[in-house]
Amino acid sequence: MALTQLKYEFSPATPRALPVPAVHFGVVGSGDMEVIIENKDLGGKAVATVVTPVTGFDHVWEMVLRRFMDECQLGNVAISINDNNATPVVVSLRLRQALLEIEG
């Protein structure tokens, strides 16, 4: 009955810095999630932590996050996610929206 914590590490080919110290987006509603992306000196790498009540989707999380990281090429960032049964499409959407939050 505890929450699952998943950790992933990514090494972007051409690491790009987050233009703000941190950005937060999303609400942990049912089938939804929130994310904080923040600058952190990780020697160019990116780390992601997911806290979720769901088990058995470790591989899917990794793939969804990898696809996002491949697209955005962020380096030196820590990504923290609180999840409540978000589907992969919602996860991808919220991650993209978090970045749009900075631009908007």
Partner: peptide
């Protein structure tokens, strides 16, 4: 159809 429905 979404690839996943509620509760994954």
């Amino acid at each position: 159809q979404e690839t996943f429905q509620e509760k994954l």
